[in-house]
Design a protein around this nucleic acid. Structure first.
Ligand code: MN
Ligand code: MN
Ligand code: ZN
Ligand code: ZN
Lengths: 166, 166
DNA sequence: ACTATATTGAGAGTGAGTCTCATAAACAAT
DNA sequence: ATTGTTTATGAGACTCACTCTCAATATAGT
């Protein structure tokens, strides 16, 4: 499975902090740096969690994680997903389904968006082309400015039926 | 307060079903038609709920609704929000906060998107200009096609800090 | 009015996620 | 290595947004 895997092809990315991370390379190093920056330790359990998510290669829920790695403790996984999110390693995807989804955050995974099935809840990654992305950013910046919001990130997701549920 | 209130100015809209609804006019008529189409009754409680949401003029949570109309029964409000959502009257906005937000759906409220405060959870409406909106739609359609998804609607939301929380 | 069906509301129930706290692991010195 | 200090772990209790149940009630059709 490939991290930093741009669904539309890119495989090399430059992080906010100047880190240049390559597909499949130094994932743990990058995660460790993020954690250290927030005074967290990169423990064995957190490594297991990161490996499990990397192996999945797609957004995962807690049941996904536990069934892939049954020896992990649910309460610790929840706690660690929170820690990883606070450290900028992981993004939480809140859908209408029972469970939240988690995936690696930028710059560990390149910028992309989500197709969400309103029936089974599956989440699939996709990319908008750079031109659209730029225009969206410009529109959002303008709207944020008018409303006095300080923008951090945006979501663009499409809700519909996946091939299995159609 | 104004329904069919396009944040960027429009005040007249044509619905999917050919209904032409004007600002502040015939809200109950339109809601009743949606419910009837799904074999639901437009009861007094549902009218109260619709009025409460219309009076709010912004996305509301269950506590918002109950504190504005304390005589409404929470279990019935939840059930009726579900009915209204199934009938296409209401959209549910799922955020990371404790409570879901609800607002009128298109075409009762014109197409728009959301600024979401990651601190206090407030949800504010905004519009993208039509050119950006068209390009996003085209990009989403393409991505949906490639993934075999049947597209229904899209969300574009910006997460950041509201003026009060910055 | 009468029947058939849909809705209501109070409260019980569900379950994803959080909290507690006693134990264990990680780090930083000696 | 040993010790001390801080942080993380995990089992289970707990929370609470939301759903379900079911007897009572409202609505629509005739
Ligand atoms: Mn994704
Ligand atoms: Mn809105
Ligand atoms: Zn599906
Ligand atoms: Zn705020």
């Amino acid at each position: 499975m490939s991290l930093i895997n741009n669904p539309s092809g890119g495989a090399l990315t430059t992080g906010r902090d100047g880190d240049v991370v390559h597909a499949d390379s130094d994932l743990h190093g990058a995660v460790g740096r993020h954690l250290a920056r927030h005074d967290y330790r990169y423990t064995a359990g957190r490594r297991r969690l990161v490996d499990t998510m990397a192996d999945a290669g797609k957004p995962v829920t807690l049941p996904d994680i536990i069934s892939a790695s049954p020896d992990l403790s649910p309460s610790s996984v929840y706690r660690n997903l929170d820690v990883l999110e606070r450290s900028g390693v992981v993004d939480r995807i809140t859908t209408r389904g029972d469970h939240a989804f988690f995936e690696f955050a930028e710059p560990l995974l390149s910028h992309h968006h989500h197709l969400i099935c309103i029936d089974c809840g599956i989440v699939k990654d996709f990319c908008l082309d750079d031109e659209v992305e730029k225009r969206v950013d410009r529109g959002l910046l303008e709207a944020a400015g008018e409303a006095g919001f300080t923008p951090l990130r945006h979501n663009v997701d499409l809700h519909g039926y996946c091939p299995d549920c159609k």
